[in-house]
Each structure stands twice: as C-alpha cells, then as structure tokens.
C-alpha cells in the first residue's frame, strides 16, 4: 500500500514537471517569435514622444520579454 502511494506521487510530480518544462521553454522562446516578425514593427508610425514605432515598440518588447522570463523562472522554482 505504502509503495503504491509513493509510486503515484512520483508519476504526478513528473507529469507536472513536464507541463512546466514545456511552458518554460515556450516562455523563453516567445521573444524570438515577437522580434522575428520584423514586418509587424518595421515602420515609423505611430510615433511615441517623437520616437518612430520601430524603436519604441522594440523597447516595449524588452519589458514584455523580462516579464515572460520572470514568469518562466518563477513557475519552475526549486523551493516554494
């Protein structure tokens, strides 16, 4: 009985870790996709504070990337 319970627990932990690992990888690679679609931001308009779209959008993506990475780091913490 004891053995069976611990076996089930291990399986659960593993599937949970797999789900999280996939989410982790996706979150880490998402900025590549966002920056990779150059046509979505390659243009001067609309400007923000005089800055062409091309520049300020990519700076916004830096913040977005930081948030995505932080989520990735937090959902896979060793200690809770």
């Amino acid at each position: 009985m004891e053995v069976k319970v611990s076996y089930i627990r291990i399986v659960n932990v593993n599937t949970m870790m797999n789900g999280r690992s996939i989410a982790y990888a996706v979150l880490c690679l998402l900025p590549f996709l966002l920056y990779g679609l150059v046509n979505t931001y390659n243009g001067p308009k609309p400007t923000l504070g005089g800055l062409p779209f091309f520049y300020w959008y990519e700076m916004v993506l830096l913040v977005v990337g930081g948030v995505l990475y932080a989520i990735a780091a937090l959902i896979t913490r060793d200690r809770t």
Partner: peptide
C-alpha cells in the same frame, strides 16, 4: 531581448 531566453 532574446539572449536571456537562450540563457534560461
């Protein structure tokens, strides 16, 4: 913006 994804 992308290099820290590689790092992680």
């Amino acid at each position: 913006g992308t290099s820290f994804g590689v790092a992680l």
